[in-house]
Nucleic acid binder design. Sequence first.
DNA 1: CTCCATACTAAGCGGTTGCTTAGATCTAAG
DNA 2: CTTAGATCTAAGCAACCGCTTAGTATGGAG
Lengths: 207, 207
Amino acid sequence: MTSTQGEFALLDETWSSVTPPAARRMLIAAAAAFSVRGYHATTTRDIAAQAGMSPAAVYIHYRSKEELLFQISRIGHGTSLSVLTAVSEDDPAARLAAAVRAFASWHAEFHTTARVVQYELSALTPEHLAEVVELRRRIEAAVRGMVEDGVAAGVFDVPDVRGATLAVLSLCIDVARWYQPSGRRTPAEIGDLYADLVLRMVGTAGR
Amino acid sequence: MTSTQGEFALLDETWSSVTPPAARRMLIAAAAAFSVRGYHATTTRDIAAQAGMSPAAVYIHYRSKEELLFQISRIGHGTSLSVLTAVSEDDPAARLAAAVRAFASWHAEFHTTARVVQYELSALTPEHLAEVVELRRRIEAAVRGMVEDGVAAGVFDVPDVRGATLAVLSLCIDVARWYQPSGRRTPAEIGDLYADLVLRMVGTAGR
DNA sequence: CTCCATACTAAGCGGTTGCTTAGATCTAAG
DNA sequence: CTTAGATCTAAGCAACCGCTTAGTATGGAG
């Protein structure tokens, strides 16, 4: 697997649950377009053209343009939550570091999806937004739990748990805004850098 | 000056250089609309209505909708650069802390303007974007200079200066995304929290 | 073969968009 | 009073938007 194939191979994995293939191609085309131009600046004709189909083909698989956005947002949020909670470390510091490494590097590696996930919430219908907000609540709770565990174990020095949680999440999420594949850091390097910075923020004792 | 008048009073200061008054009202209306719905989802009729004028009145003062965006972005970037470089402290740690406090709290207090500044760059024409990118380069250089000063003085422990600079800026900028006036923290409290977290990230010796 | 469901396209409909044109109103100088 | 410039509005134009309709191609079941 070369580095240029890497993203597409993993993208296929991200969207692998979407069938039929034409519906999947449409979602991937929509995510790419929303990411670059934004939801409102992207037309259904843009999406169909990128997927190699006629404008009307969008409506065979999706009720509306907004439902395309919702599916991208729902699957993207679910994937990022999985990445965050898949860590297996026991030690609180190692656990938080691994989670931050995975979450930050995901926002770089899949910045295309991540940008839609993080910056197009206001285009969702109230019902769809509510569903996504619940996933975001679980993401926040996962990080807060890790910070609390470290404090309880006496290895973190955090005067404001909610504030620290906010900052950790914010730092990782903002990677999706500034990351460029042509930049000087790889997603893995960003993950390592951020894991170190976060451990400093939570005042890890023995480093 | 009450807290509800606070933002408007300071907003007037932000836009005080814009004349005539009708052009200023239009800019403020456009910034509010762009911030909530995004540039592409906002119509020139929305802006004119919010400013209490007819749709055609926009084009008396601005060549296009994009020029409204450019003026907001240009003035907003300039203001945030001023806020960052106005710090008067000499000690490197106190200086960086003051800059972060000011920059982060600006992104909260003026989140309306800040959101347009940070999230609508892709809607600018190439020429206008180039002008704004130069201001962003100066913002990045200002923060990097403060980090370098602390390292040179031996009070910071930073293995990766560019990486730390990136993280500090990223943390502050992302405040514009999540801040809500109805939230549990005031802009000043966010500034204090972030100043502390940043000093931890740069490994300040005597804290 | 017929039948039928699925997947797709060509054409286009009603509504909205950014922006323009023609003309009204106001202010202030001569 | 006349004139000129600046500011604003009513009306509307060409282009584009999301989405629908009508009809075609395909492939598997009976």
